[in-house]
Every structure is written in C-alpha cells, then in structure tokens.
Design a protein around this nucleic acid. Structure first.
Length: 380
RNA sequence: GGGCAGGUGGCGGAGUGGCCAAUCGCAGCAGACUGUAAAUCUGCCGUCCGUUGGGACUACGUAGGUUCGAAUCCUACCCUGCCCA
C-alpha cells in the first residue's frame, strides 16, 4: 500500500501535485513544513496553525529527547496527544544536530554522542535508539539517523559520511520493521524516510541514492544542502539528485526555505520541504511580502500606515500597520514575535497552496517567473 | 552661609599625566539568518575626507595656568546632589 501518489504532473517541468497518506490524513504536496523543534512552532498555537492551514510540521527527536524526554512522551502516548494535534507530524532524527552542534558531538560508526547543549550531559544516540524514540514520539513520518556534514567538507570525509549514513539507514530500517511487527510506539501508520547525503560531490550523491534506494523506504529525504554552499552549486546538486531519483517516490528536501530555492526545488520535482526561515526570520524582524522582504526594524517603517503586505489576507495584515509592528519590535513587545511569525507562515503556506493550483493548471513556470519578478522588485 | 561628593560622547557609567576620539552597557543605524544551542548574531555609532591603511578638525562643566604632552595636576568661577546651619 503506497503512501504517496502523484495526481498531476506539470507538462512543462518536473513539478507535480501529489497526495501523501498519513494514517487517516491525506495531505497535498508540494508541502511546506514549518519547524516546531520542541513540538511547537515557536510563538504559534496549534489553533493558529490550523487557522493558517498548516497540514503538518516537523519536530526534532534530539531536542524532544532532552526535554520533555521519553518518560513524559510515553505517559502522554506520544507528542500528538500531548499537544492535541490531529494533523500531520514529521520528526527529524538529530542528524542535523551532528552538523549544528558540531562542538558538542563525537561520532563513531556505532552512533553519535552528544553533549547536551542545555547542561552538558552526555547522551549516546544509535540509529536504533533514534527510531525507537521517534516511535515513542509517534510522528507520522520519521527519518533515519544520518550524518549531515558541513560545507565545505573534503571528499574523503564526505565519502565516509555517506557510508555511515547508509550503514545507519540499514539499521534504522531493520529496527523500524521490528517495531512495526511488535506494534510498539504511538503511531499506527508511521512512515520512515531514508536520507541521502554526499555533500556537493555528484558521485557520492549517486552512491548514496543507490544505497538508500536499495534499502527501500516510504520516502526519500535529501539532506546536507543549504549548509553554506553557494546557491548555484546547491541548485546543481539539487538538479543532479532529481535526475537520479525515481520520479515515483515522494521526495523531501530538508531545510529549504528561501523562496527562490523553494520554486527551484518544486520545479525539479521535490514534494516536501521544511525551513525555520519564516519563523526565525519573523522573530528577527523580517517579513515576507509579495514585493520582497522587509525588515520591520528599519526606521523607515516607523510611520508607515500600510500592512506588511497589502496583498496578504492574514489577520496581521488586516489589522496591524507596519508602524505599529515597528513600534512593538522597538519596544520589545512580545506580541510582535507572534504576529511576524504568523504572517510569514501564512504567506508561505498560502504560496504553496497557490503553487499546487498553478501546477494543476500547467501555469507553474509562468507563475514562478511572475512571482519572483515581483518579489525581487523590492518596491515595498 | 558652611561641609562633603560630583560634573566625561544621546543616556548610564569607566578612565584619573602620553598606549584616549576615550573600556563597557543602553539607545540609535544597518546587515545576516535555509532538516532552530537563535525574541539571535554581526558591523557602524564626535564631525569631515578616504574603498583600505589612514588623515584633518572639534572635544571630557567654563575660563585661565603648569607641562614636551592634560579628561587626568593647579587656580578661579558656574552648576548638581546630600548633610549641617
């Protein structure tokens, strides 16, 4: 029983619209996942996420392991029950933390030892443990433990990380099947995605694709991109991977969130992406608008009566002027963090919705061109 | 009227003869952020010139003085706070 089905393919590009089945849920792709590392999309309530139209978000196993921790999640029968969220939930394995917590980790073939960024305590994560813990979390989609390497990284190290990632993927898959058989965990229909690594080296990407594909997963995630490499290089790799991955599988490109990159990836046939940018940048004062990005901290907005984006219909744009948001930001009024996050998530979720509509009408490429032209005009 | 403490860049507050255009914090100005150690981080922040190295000018209450050299020492004055009368 396949959990993913393409329902429409763009005639002019590889963009497609699909349906991802997560238990009883049916979610349309291309899908954008806001990031809710600790089980919450920072500043936003679950009611607000639903109001915006968020179908799924992604939480993080490493962070949830440190707090609230396994016991609490077991007690509440998983994260979805704990937070009372009945839409989609993805979890990341902690592979990204191998990259982002690089001073606090020690990696071996067996697994990875983290020193907690909270109290310095040591924790050893094996592929099996990460799978087991994601079962406890009860996410709809879990991912394998992988080694996300930084950029630049030398070829030999990248090669080794591909090997480790493959080795771990096999162990993850084995543990996952075991868990399914024993009916362990808090998700009846959890899926497991494999992760492809290989940095910017095409032969390594190819090797990783072949190895991960041969293990066989419910979907395929692409990791290790958008970690500092030049955009052109990233696009080249994105394109290469797309050409070498089966077009029938669901493809999840991890960590992508700049609008130009989102359009590029969708055009190349990727179905799912996630990013902290709408929320993090929102908290840092940046708003996405139809006419480009604006930084609400800038003094020029102190008297601006217009909304963040006069083409946006979110409640923030209906009720709050740029001047007011500027005032809140300058006064460190906490409400602004929510308002900015809300708008940005709304903006991007809405954009994905429009993109799906445009794909079905074979207007994706034209829409992409028009949208980016306007977005880069920066007349806001 | 007397005593004590003090007056430093938009504010707070270091400095107490050369390394001082002056630590630091705040405020201000701008930039960054791509599977969140992020309500974070970085840069600028006397004026003018220079892409950089740097240069010129004006400045530590006011006015004088000592000194090769003063925000720093001396004199007078002005002002602020506290205490006494």
């Amino acid at each position: 029983m396949k959990s993913f089905k393409v329902i429409y393919r763009d005639k002019l590009s590889q963009a497609r619209v699909g349906i991802l089945k997560l238990g009883n849920l049916e979610i349309f792709t291309p899908l954008f996942l806001p990031v809710g590392t600790l089980g919450v999309v920072k500043t936003l309530s679950y009611e607000e996420l639903k109001e915006i139209g968020v179908d799924a978000f992604i939480a993080n196993a490493y962070h949830l392991y440190l707090r609230p921790g396994e016991e609490i999640l077991k007690k509440f029968c998983g994260l979805k029950k704990f937070i009372n969220w009945d839409r989609g939930l993805f979890t990341d394995s902690g592979g990204f933390q191998i990259y982002s917590l690089k001073e606090l980790k020690k990696i071996t073939e067996e697994g990875v030892e983290f020193r907690s960024h909270i109290d310095g305590s040591k924790h050893f994560f094996t592929p099996e443990k990460v799978i087991e813990f994601q079962a406890v979390i009860g996410s709809d989609v879990s991912v394998c433990l992988d080694e996300c390497v930084e950029y630049p990284v030398d070829y030999n190290y990248a090669k080794r990380s591909v090997e480790v990632t493959t080795l771990w993927a096999k162990r993850c898959k084995k543990k996952f099947d075991e868990i399914k058989k024993n009916n362990f965990g808090n998700s009846q229909n959890q899926l497991l995605f494999g992760i492809i690594q290989g940095s910017v080296y095409k032969d390594l990407r190819k090797k990783s694709i072949e190895e991960i594909l041969s293990i066989g997963f419910d979907g395929y995630a692409i990791g290790g991109l958008a970690v500092g490499e030049p955009r052109e290089l990233m696009w080249e790799v994105v394109n290469f991977i797309s050409e070498n991955l089966s077009q029938d599988e669901v493809k999840y490109i991890m960590g992508i969130g700049e609008l130009e990159d989102i359009f590029f990836c969708i055009e190349k046939g990727y179905d799912i992406m996630d990013c902290v940018l709408p929320t993090r940048n929102g908290r840092n004062g940046q708003a996405l608008t139809s006419f480009g990005k604006i930084n609400i901290k800038n003094s020029k907005y102190s008297t601006d009566e217009s909304p963040l984006d006069n083409e946006c219909s979110c409640f923030v744009c209906k009720n709050y002027s740029r001047a007011l948001l500027h005032h809140y930001y300058k006064s460190q009024e906490l409400l602004v963090l929510k308002l900015m996050s809300y708008h940005n998530v709304y903006f991007i979720i809405n954009l994905f919705k429009t993109i799906r509509e445009k794909i079905i009408k074979d207007e994706f490429l034209r829409f992409k061109e028009d949208f980016l032209k306007k977005f880069n005009s920066e007349i806001c």
